[in-house]
Design a protein around this nucleic acid. Structure first.
Lengths: 169, 169
DNA sequence: GAAAGATACTTCGGTATAGAAGTAATTGCA
DNA sequence: TGCAATTACTTCTATACCGAAGTATCTTTC
């Protein structure tokens, strides 16, 4: 059943892959640092960091489904459900049954949720500014495109296995 | 007190920073995908994903302190405490008071913990291989060095604030 | 047009993570 | 030498996340 993600480990690696030279390691470390920095910013504003990613989606496009939010934030749907609940409690969004497809909810910003954009968005720039200090523009762009490609590569491995257990072709 | 991590949001960003073009966004997405892929591999082997990062450190250098593990894995010390407890329960490591400095523990691999190296290490290469498919060697290396620089930049902002509230110089 | 499958969401249980505050051991310094 | 600061670790509480399994709704298919 599995293919990219095997049950039996692949034959021993040719290169032992030192952590420093490993993409997985560097991505994880960078992520942890971004995450802590972001948390520090947001907690000062009394906003839970889990909200951030959802707010960013909603500021761009309001009234979307939880599925859409999950896809955009790269988070599982049950996680989104939990966090949206929490955001409703905090008065940042409301839920409304979609009339077209009654399985769905529309998640809608409240005034308070919308107002946070002005207060919080500058942090996105702030964090990226700090993070990218001393990095040439071209290098950064290349890095981001490599990250994007890696995300796509890893998603592929997954879709094949988890989302489509039976090959369609 | 804070400096890099401000209480008052910085003045409004010059560029609105579209998510796709944001380093934070790309790093986070890549991290989530790596994380899921890794989890899928490890759960098939009955190993909790939290163990992985600690095992990797211990396979290289056995008998280190929890502090050292925390530093190497970029994880807070209380998190390390929890996970090491869990690893002890699962019989992968043991703890031994350091006789030189009795505040410390040495975390030591059991035979079982050591044996996992052969079984699990190939995944490090596997994941990186899948992730970096179609990416030029030079581009990857540049990407990793940019990630490293970003991690350093973000850590700096933190150390200034959290680790050294009072300037030493 | 009814059963089978897919989709959107929820609930439950568990892991991974952090911050804050506490304890014990060590180090630094007056 | 003795007390203050620091360090290593723990405990408590809360958040962020996932997989599995369940419900309701929609779609497909014969």
């Amino acid at each position: 059943m599995a293919d990219r993600v095997r049950t039996i480990p692949p034959s021993s690696s040719p290169t032992p892959v030192s952590p420093e030279a490993s993409a997985g390691y560097q991505v994880r470390r960078a992520h942890r640092r971004f995450d802590r920095f972001l948390n520090a910013c947001l907690s000062r504003q009394g906003v839970k960091s889990g909200f951030w990613y959802y707010l960013r989606v909603l500021w761009i496009r309001d009234g979307v489904s939880q599925k859409y939010l999950s896809d955009m934030t790269n988070v599982a749907e049950n996680t989104t459900a939990t966090i949206v609940n929490s955001m409703v409690e905090d008065g940042l969004v409301t839920r409304k049954r979609d009339t077209e497809d009654r399985r769905r909810f529309s998640v809608l910003l409240t005034d308070r949720g919308r107002a946070l954009e002005k207060k919080l968005m500058p942090y996105a720039a702030e964090i990226n500014t700090v993070a990218t200090e001393g990095i040439a523009e071209a290098d950064l762009e290349l890095c981001l495109s490599v990250l994007k490609r890696m995300s796509e590569n890893l998603a592929l491995g997954f879709d094949e296995h988890d989302k489509r257990p039976s090959e369609k072709a």
